[in-house]
Amino acid sequence: MNDFAIETERLTKIYGSGNTEVAALRETTLRIRRGEVIALLGPSGSGKSTFLTAIGLINAPTSGRIVIGGELIMDGPSALTNLSAFRREHIGFVFQKSNLIPFLTARDNVQIALELDHWKASDAKRRALELLDSLDVADRADHFPSTLSGGQQQRIAIARALANQPSIILADEPTAALDSHRGRQVMQLFSQVALQHGAAVFVVTHDHRSLDVFDTIYNMEDGVIRLESAPLVQAQAGPPRA
């Protein structure tokens, strides 16, 4: 079994063409181990979100390869599998705003992810309640998102991301809308999830207050990723910008 949850190889993303051409990613190579919790820092416009959406299989790279769980998924802009189904089975997303579906209850927001993966409704309901319980929001299962606090919404979003037991969790600024206390709780939750579920957690963040919970920290600038610190797990960053 391959040790790496995600491997990117010389990943490049270019927007526009000719005079308007902008390289958002420049030959970025990165390997993320299973169970590793990674933070990606960097100023706005540095390419963090482009990298996140590329490895999340929602924004095809211009060139380079993406290997997930040892399986080559993207070879340049070409998808080698059904991305929609692959995302559903292997990747969980958490966003800056919780991005819950407003007209569904907390439980339904989690349950829908399971039903999309062909779970029976009764099993999906039970599993959704288990997940909400594990994140201490089971008492909010029948509430709509608008009646929940930011922290509760983010927990439910994490529950949804965990629903299909993904091997990768991608989070884009998950604590931006939270105060420092709740932000730290969410970051600790990611660490806990990685530990309990063995999922690789990749978090794009500006929040420097909770960096101690991450195994590895990268910094991104002008489309190039550099290793900032790797206190626990040895990660391999791509080549420095030329």
């Binding site: 999340g56 929602i58 929609s84 189904a85 995302r87 559903r88 089975e89 997303f93 991005n99 579906i101 407003p102 007209f103 829908i112 992810a113 999309l116 993966d117 949804r160 299909n164």
Partner: peptide, 15 residues
């Protein structure tokens, strides 16, 4: 936005 979100979490077009 909700449709995009559903697609993001893996909902196929037919769904």
């Amino acid at each position: 936005h909700d449709i995009a979100l559903l697609k993001l979490i893996g909902a196929p077009n037919r769904r």
